[in-house]
Amino acid sequence: MGRLTGGDPSLLRRINSSVVLRALRGTAEPPALTFTDLVHDTGLSRPTVEGVVDGLIETGLVAETPPEAGVPGDPRRGRPARRFRFRAEAGHVLGVEIGAHRTAAVLADLTGRDAGTATRDVGETDCADVRLEQVRGAIGDVLRRSGVPRDSLRAVGVGSPGIVRADGTVGLSTALPGWTGLPLADRLRRSFRCPVLVENDANAAALAEHWKGAAVGTDDVVFVLAGLSPGAGSLIGGRLHRGFNGAAGEIGALHLLGREARPENLLSTTGEPLPPLDEPAVARVFALARHGDARATEAVDRYVRRLVHDVAALVLALDPELVVVGGWASGLDGVLEPLRRELERHCLRPPRVELSSLGATAVAVGALRLALDHTEEQLFAVEGAAAR
């Protein structure tokens, strides 16, 4: 590749194209922008804007909008000004959640606007091949229902349990059978002509809450994915913190540090551990505790004490402004007050603690955000070059 210099015209055209495209994308809903609007918003000259817009129309990313019906032009002022819009429908992104009991696929256009959702149930003992087949089925369902062709996809994001390496391989997973060592990105990439990006599920949920959930407007966040195998995702300065090996936030492994009791033992009301993937059983224990069952209340108290200690350790290390708790659909509200009290005891400045506002959709929405981030990087850094 040749060296780019400050006077390189191709670089300048790419920069100008990116600036104009960003301005148009920020107004995906009517009213569209005129050349005069774009000159004002970008600071570029009118001839430059006109040339860039023509190039973006050729790429299919921008379209000229017809004049509004019923609004005739003023004969004293000539014909109405031409208006342009970003074509959000020029491509799509997909977010996929892979869980112990279900898979979900969320489709959106290039502005992140929802275009459809599909889910499929899976069995907790299903092998990797069966689970991946259900993932493909959910993806096929949402594409078919929305009428979006597969080649319209610009990127696919995936949220998965386990420690996920940079190449999309699951380095370690105790949650799903046959998941450790699975080259997940490679297996799914065979079904697409676009990039497939895989992220840990708690990390994906942290991205989701920051995008459109309880952490909007907050850049230092810990998201706790509570369950029988708890994990956490962290944002530092608005950026996801994965750690050197992608294992940051694995608080589910803290029991190895001299504490033998696992969450499935702590939440047991019978003396026998809960099945490792039986999250519905966890929800039932929480429901019994809310109704005053003594054994369930004791079990929940044991679990909450462990969870708040683990979260407190993470908070002391990262000093977030906000802790968001998510996971099971019911019962989590009982964790908030004990967690707040514990953090007040241990932290010089305890963070706010909130319940996830996205609930069961957080992982899939975060995977969608992952795909959208990748697509935006490509749009603004590469696609604009087509305007040359």
Rank of each mutant, 00 (worst) to 15 (best):
V325R: 02
H346T: 14
T117D: 07
A317Q: 04
L12S: 15
A206K: 04
A166M: 09
A360S: 04
G331P: 04
R388P: 09
I139W: 00
A281M: 05
R79K: 09
R150F: 01
A88M: 07
T27G: 05
L370C: 10
I57P: 04
P273N: 03
G91P: 07
H374S: 14
A248T: 07
L372T: 12
A386R: 14
V122Y: 00
M1I: 09
S45Y: 06
F35C: 13
V164I: 13
L240T: 02
D74V: 10
R305W: 10
A381M: 03
P351L: 13
L21C: 03
R3N: 12
A261H: 07
G181E: 03
E250A: 12
R154P: 00
Y303W: 02
A138M: 01
P275T: 15
I98W: 00
G137M: 00
G292M: 09
P72C: 11
R165T: 15
E68A: 15
V196K: 05
L188Y: 15
D373E: 11
R340Y: 08
S268N: 12
L184H: 07
A206W: 03
E337V: 13
P31E: 03
D219V: 12
A281S: 15
R113C: 12
C194M: 14
G366Y: 07
C127Q: 10
L274F: 13
L228Y: 09
V106T: 15
T65M: 12
A226R: 03
L38S: 08
L235T: 08
R120E: 03
T297C: 12
I98D: 01
G73H: 04
G331R: 09
G271M: 12
V93D: 00
L38E: 02
R77V: 06
T180Q: 04
A362Y: 11
G334H: 14
N200K: 08
E321G: 13
V285G: 02
A155N: 07
V382M: 02
I57N: 03
W211R: 10
S330M: 08
E260N: 07
L266T: 13
G91M: 07
G331A: 04
A214T: 05
D278Y: 13
V311T: 02
G140E: 05
I163E: 08
V285K: 00
R259F: 06
R305G: 06
P75Q: 07
L12R: 11
H40I: 01
P280C: 03
E29R: 11
L188N: 13
R83D: 08
L314R: 14
I236N: 01
L314E: 09
L207W: 03
D121G: 15
P183E: 14
D186F: 12
A386G: 08
I251A: 04
L110H: 13
A208E: 02
R85D: 12
P338I: 07
I251H: 00
E89I: 01
G7H: 11
T297F: 04
V71Y: 06
G168A: 10
G359Y: 09
